[in-house]
Design a protein around this nucleic acid. Structure first.
Lengths: 142, 142
DNA sequence: GAGCGAATTTAGAACCATTCCAAGTCGTGG
DNA sequence: CCACGACTTGGAATGGTTCTAAATTCGCTC
């Protein structure tokens, strides 16, 4: 539950923090992403968003996503060479890419895991971010 | 040290194991990759390889790399949306992407790290592979 | 509340890494 | 030595994404 950054307040604020404005398009794209907790591509989002804002263009969806990623309301993920996927889950988490279904699942990282992973870096390396991607099958369970 | 799979023997063998042949092009591409331990793109490799085999085509470089990846003589890595990069290091390792220089460094994984990372997966998830990518700067040291 | 400059949006062209295709070559088993 | 499949090749095609230039909208100032 708990809609992280429900919508109005924090939304405009986070954008503003990066010197960006809140616009109808950005809101609509953001909501389309929030509504369904899968990891849609820009194209998929475009299709969803067009329903409530028929005039929006694909370029704008890309622009909005870029803005949202920049102000850290959204994360982008890449699997192999596939199209970029977007994810409104801001907690530190890894991704599990199910090869049979093509679905992507968030794997929340238990406390301390990030620290331990950073610890494998030799001295002199300073990581700003780490990305962990599993590939396999998410059987039975779920 | 230790040129894993020096060249002739294991090379043809590994290809054969996947039902593939050893060809001059595949050898030349493989050696170009081995020679320089950076993480070249297909294009970069193409440029290098053309010097000793001027007639080779870009499509062939792609084909060869695909074959080499398939028979596990080579790994491919992707950073964000950039062109795929290739890497002859077969030991389990993470990648560190230096944002200032654009260079990529291999980070060998200490014994047991993979196991511990796999342990964060909830029951029902079965990972065939994990990929770890750091992003940051590799300062002074090196 | 009109006028302005800056930020956004838009449609379509442009890009670029990669894949596809159809034709030609090579090499191996029979 | 021939046939067949594996491999290579150049060029065309693809597909996600970015660029461009022009219109629109926003937030202000006067």
């Amino acid at each position: 539950m708990a809609a992280t950054t429900a919508t109005p307040e924090g939304f405009a604020q986070k954008l503003a923090d990066s010197g960006l404005r809140s616009t109808p398009q950005r809101e609509v794209v953001y909501h389309a992403l929030m509504r369904k907790q899968d990891h849609p591509t820009a194209d998929e989002l475009f299709a969803r968003v067009k329903q409530e804002m028929p005039g929006i263009s694909l370029a704008t969806v890309y622009n909005c996503l870029e803005a949202l990623v920049q102000c850290k309301l959204v994360r982008s993920v890449n699997f192999e060479r596939g199209p970029t996927r977007y994810c409104p889950n801001l907690r530190p988490h890894a991704h599990f890419h199910d090869e049979s279904s093509g679905a992507t699942h968030d794997i929340d990282l238990p406390e301390g895991v990030l620290e331990r992973i950073n610890a494998i870096l030799p001295p002199g390396y300073d990581a700003r971010s780490v990305e962990i991607v599993f590939r396999g099958s998410a059987g039975a369970k779920r």
